[in-house]
Computed example of a mutant assay.
Amino acid sequence: MVEEPVGGDASTSLYQRILNDIRDRIVSGEWEPGYRIPFEHELTAEYGCSRMTVNKALSQLAKSGLIERRRRSGSFVRRPQSQAAVLEIHDIRIEVEALGLPYRYELMAQTKRRATTVDRERLGPGPSVAGQVLALQCLHYAGVRPFCVEDRLISLAAVPEAADQEFLKSAPGPWLIGQVPWSAAEHVIRAAAADGETAADLGLASGAPCLIIERRTWSAERPVTHVRFTYPANAHAVVARFTPSDS
């Protein structure tokens, strides 16, 4: 059987067409995690090609982490799993795009207020924590699905320019990195069950397990920001690289 390119650019092989079609349906959210991909014989009939071509495309999709192939059950869309390097200050956009998914950001709430006792505890020890703060709630998307909830507190004593920022089109994290040189950071990692509000934001069932990464940063011993990222636990992994101590 000789396969000919179908439609579009004549240089595009059927293998590439099948690969692109399935990838596009997954990335767009049309085929959600857990969706069963049509069986090989069904794709063979749909594209008018050999089973070997279909198998080659599915194998490549499995290798890239988009689908999972189960013996005698078929192929299923995988939930992408991201990795965060906790020893770095990373940009969530880069984290999402590394999964091969389109990134989108949404500002849910923004409030300027005088720092409360809880705010001062969140920002941590240091001078100038008794003034005003900017509280932000943001939602980051990977494709059509919520990726993580960001709950951030910024000390306006350390970063007064933040009071004039709307943060409608871009997240506060990258803006802060470009605005204030940080000299120290602290990460805390823990697990928690999603409360009603968080579950609704992330599209989870109430009480679903979540991974929480909290970070404080300082600049010249002045607290700058405290941020809490909440991820669905089954879609995120934490990575830390370290070397032996000289001592």
Rank of each mutant, 00 (worst) to 15 (best):
A208T: 10
G178C: 06
K56D: 13
C210N: 02
V54F: 05
R17T: 15
S206K: 10
C148P: 00
R25I: 06
E88M: 03
L156D: 06
E121P: 03
L99R: 02
E161G: 00
M108N: 08
A208V: 14
P160M: 14
N20Y: 09
T243L: 13
I67H: 04
T225E: 00
Q137D: 08
P33A: 02
G29L: 07
L204T: 10
V227I: 10
F167M: 10
E214T: 09
S13Y: 07
G207M: 14
S28K: 11
V239I: 04
A158H: 01
L136P: 02
E68A: 04
T198N: 05
C148W: 01
R113E: 08
R17W: 08
A163G: 01
T198W: 09
A194Y: 04
K169Y: 03
S128G: 03
E214N: 00
Y47R: 12
L99M: 15
G178S: 02
N20C: 03
V2I: 11
L153A: 06
R114H: 09
R70A: 12
C210P: 00
H90T: 13
Y15C: 02
R120V: 12
Q83H: 14
L211W: 01
S73D: 15
I37S: 00
P174N: 14
V6Y: 10
A184V: 02
T198I: 11
S13M: 08
P38W: 14
M1C: 02
E186T: 01
P174W: 14
L134Y: 01
R114L: 13
P181S: 02
G100F: 09
V54C: 08
R69C: 06
E42F: 02
H41R: 12
K56F: 14
R222A: 14
S75K: 07
H41M: 15
A157P: 04
S245T: 09
V224G: 07
R72C: 00
E106V: 12
T116S: 14
I177N: 04
E97W: 08
K112L: 15
G143W: 12
H90Y: 10
L14H: 01
R216K: 14
E42R: 05
A130C: 03
R51A: 15
F147V: 12
Q110H: 03
G178M: 04
P127C: 03
S73P: 04
S206I: 11
